[in-house]
């Protein structure tokens, strides 16, 4: 018998400290598999966010830097411009990318920086204890909107892919989900394309991954995956929003 899913060498062989059922582990694995497949581990530099994935540098077996909250695209820009031979990715959550880091995200897309952004959207602030994020759904309960997010008080959720698609500089934007196994396979394809774009010097590429936060949603991991499919996907439709071929 043969092992058909060897652990990627771009991932350090240690258990992850994320909560049970958290999507971060899945996306970490996908990025590591892609680094192996494209043989870019030796020249990849990752930017870890502030959020649960602040520990990402402990798990990825490549050069990593951890930046201030939301500044991932700015740091990635600096690395890419000073060392263009490096493959640079920024790994960010929704509180990081869509809130405090919105300016950095929008402007790096407008400048069409040749970087790859992996945006994990779980509609809540995870690490800090489940506060409302810009991506929290209307009616969704969080610790800072215990009665559910309302338009009158909190406004509408931000759809990052749709927003960035208005910018000419954004070359590749896709939204996928890791709530089901087929979704994970599609996510891998999207992330691989985002890395390949950078190798081909296409410009700004971002993949938004709809992920789960069962702990802060107050659900089991299986209920969380169902929440993504039933509640999040209608608000955040999956698909390609910008592609280099357009």
């Amino acid at each position: 018998m043969k092992l058909i899913n060897k652990k990627p060498s771009s991932l350090v062989d240690k258990p992850m400290r994320y909560c049970p059922g958290c999507g971060h582990g899945i996306v970490h694995r996908l990025i590591a598999e892609i680094m192996d497949e494209l043989d870019i581990r030796e020249r990849t530099v990752g930017v870890a966010p502030v959020g649960c994935a602040v520990f990402a540098d402990e798990y990825f077996n490549c050069d990593m830097i951890q930046g201030p909250h939301g500044r991932g695209p700015a740091i990635a820009t600096g690395i890419k411009r000073s060392k263009p031979e490096c493959i640079v990715f920024s790994y960010q959550g929704d509180g990081d990318l869509a809130s405090i880091g919105m300016a950095e995200t929008v402007h790096s897309a407008a400048r069409s920086e040749n970087i790859t952004i992996i945006f994990i959207n779980n509609a809540i602030y995870g690490m800090t204890g489940g506060q409302m994020a810009p991506t929290t759904l209307l009616g969704q309960i969080s610790s800072t909107c215990p009665a559910g997010r309302s338009v009158a008080v909190n406004g509408y959720p931000i759809k990052v892919c749709e927003m960035l698609a208005q910018l000419q500089g954004a070359r590749y934007l896709e939204r996928t989900s890791v709530s089901t196994a087929p979704g994970v396979i599609k996510t891998k394809k999207a992330i691989k394309k985002a890395f390949q774009n950078q190798i081909d010097c296409v410009g700004f590429s971002m993949v938004e991954v709809l992920s789960t936060c069962p702990t802060n949603w107050g659900m089991t991991p299986v209920q969380g995956a169902r929440f993504v499919d039933e509640k999040m996907t209608p608000i955040y439709p999956l698909g390609v929003y910008r592609s280099p071929e357009q």
């Binding site: 092992l3 058909i4 899913n5 991932l11 582990g25 196994a181 994970v184």
Partner: peptide, 19 residues
């Protein structure tokens, strides 16, 4: 059947698929 879907969804790389 060794399809590996369980390993795809596993967030903790806990599943090895042998075929």
């Amino acid at each position: 059947t060794g399809c590996g879907l369980c390993a795809q969804i596993c967030p903790d790389l806990a599943i090895e698929v042998w075929k």
